[in-house]
Amino acid sequence: MIDEEVKQIVEEFIKKTSRLLPDNFETEDLLEDLKSHIYEGFKHKQQIRPSESPDLLVQEILKELGTPEEIAEEYGQERVQDVNTEKDDDRFQYYLVRLVAAFIVAVIAAWVVSSVTEGAVEFYFAVIVLMGFAVIEWFVRAKQTGES
């Protein structure tokens, strides 16, 4: 059984770490891993030293785990290696396909909007607006995932 005080310490640590990492699915996964590691370590230490204070045990685990800053730094290093190993050709192809797909979707959507409004919304105007939204969405997503 894990008491509330321990849970609070763990949550505080996870929150502090999450603030230093990009907001994406990979980070959520990493934070789940860290949380699971802490509870696993806590269980292990409690079995060995059952009379020890839970606070002390959890602090010991957090010390072994490293500071949120150290974890974020390692995460950043791994991401840099990741980006460096990506092939430029693949990246170019990926962006081209994404751009063409966004354009096709914008044209179809603009045609639908223009037809439904019986020409009140001009087709070319709708294409430009929708492409604008696609570009904004692209930037927002790139910022969220830390993509360059």
Binding site: L30, L34, H37, L65, G66, E78
Partner: peptide, 9 residues
């Protein structure tokens, strides 16, 4: 290593 730094790896 600091155990937390293992997870990015």
């Amino acid at each position: 290593v600091k155990e937390g730094t293992l997870y990015p790896i």
